[in-house]
Write a protein that binds this DNA or RNA. Structure first.
Length: 122
RNA sequence: GAAGCAGAUCGCCUUAUCGCGUCUCGAUUCAUCGAGAUGAGGAAAGUCCGGACACCAUAGUGCAAUAUAGUGGUUAAUGGCCACCAGUCGUGAGACUAGGAAAAGUGCAACAGAAAGUAUGUACAGGUAAUGCUGUAGUGAAACCAGGUAAACUCUAUUAGGUGCAAUGUCAUGUAUACCAGCGUUUGAGCGUGCACGCGCGAUUGUUGGAGGGUAGGCAGCUAAAGUGUGCCAGCAAUGGUUCACGUAGAUAAAUGAUAAGGGCUCGAAAGAGUACAGAAUCCGGCUUAUAGAUCUGCUUUUUUU
RNA sequence: GGAGGCGUAGCUCAGCUGGAUAGAGCAUUGCCCUUCUAAGGCAACGGUCAUAGGUUCGAAUCCUAUCGCCUUCA
């Protein structure tokens, strides 16, 4: 499978996002937090977010969001096989320090393995 | 050589791998694939000014409110920019200045001081028929018949209808001016985006209360423009005219990236460290603020040498 | 993206319009009162008036710029 993350895979609908935060469950691997919800109607949708409260400059926020998107793209094959087409995801960066690529990479892998354990136990 | 003043320009590069947005072409299983092109700034920032553009209003008039303030020029326009005059600062190159009016009127001036304006009177000296009549001292930012303060009210001149792309149009969804009750009824309710007069519309309405449904999606607006660069001409200059060349992001939970290797540049003996400020959101012209470092041009002061 | 508002003591605010002593309540510290504590009384401590310029004899107050925080829009 190709490691892609294009426009159709982005979580955009305001309704779906609201539903995700109200009904969804979350797991975290500091400084990352994953909010997920089974939502079969819209298919696999993924969004990323960085708080404006922690990062005031637009440059820093876009930089972190790019890192999050890139690492989701590179590591998404870890999630294959768990029917991820049925889920909506939102990946949040909740730290307050500006991260580098390696930190996000290791934490993203930890986060996804946690998620796999959680799903297979249910 | 050192210190400094003014103006202008640049502000990391190359290769490989994996990706993202837009456009074009091709293929088709009709939402995917393939190929190609293209994709952040000098401030994109602050939102402090000015416009374009859009909608609302538009028979007018008056009042209020806003902003600017030497003179002339420039521009689509400005509170910007340019030139000149005046003042202040600097040895100088230069920098800064809300720089109209106090003989239109009103107000304000703590403490000190006799007295801070319907003026008054201390000490010394001079002078007189006599007297604050004259000078000096003392207080204070300002005091002998005048001033100061308009970034106090005000006056003068100029300026100005309001709201802003979350404008606005359109498609889809929606019973939506849903509906019910009361009140007002040409003797004028209410609305017309600061107020008043006036004028127009005017029950398919206005207002008060009750009851109650839905959206927060797509498309257009959306990027060729008061456009950028260069040479020549006019002008002290801002700027204008003209020739040639270029054809320059268009996203929307928001693309323009990540990793690896190598090379520049700066600091350092080396190891090594650093490589700024910062990310388009309708579009332009300015201003202001942030900014590691590098380059160029003109000029000033000083020192040395010739 | 647009529009609007607020920064004064550790906290909540007044003073700003209209310029001349920076104040109040709570909190903190000390003393009094009480057998002790609370309440009460007296006193003290605590401020670059968000930052930087300008106007003025004089600025928390007027003007300009900057920084931070908050509200709002179909």
């Amino acid at each position: 499978m190709k490691l892609t993350y294009n426009k159709t895979e982005k979580l955009k609908s305001e309704k779906a996002i609201g539903k995700l935060f109200v009904e969804g469950k979350s797991i975290s691997a500091y400084p990352l937090r994953l909010v997920y919800l089974k939502n079969e109607t819209i298919g696999l949708k993924v969004g990323v977010s960085v708080s404006k409260r922690n990062f005031k400059k637009a440059v820093d926020r876009t930089y972190i969001k790019r890192l999050l998107r890139e690492n989701y793209r590179l590591n998404k094959n870890m999630l294959i096989g768990n029917n991820i087409d049925d889920y909506s995801f939102m990946i949040l960066y909740i730290g307050k320090e500006k991260p580098d690529f390696k930190l996000i990479s290791t934490k993203m892998k930890a986060l996804f393995s946690k998620f796999n354990v959680r799903i297979s136990n249910n």
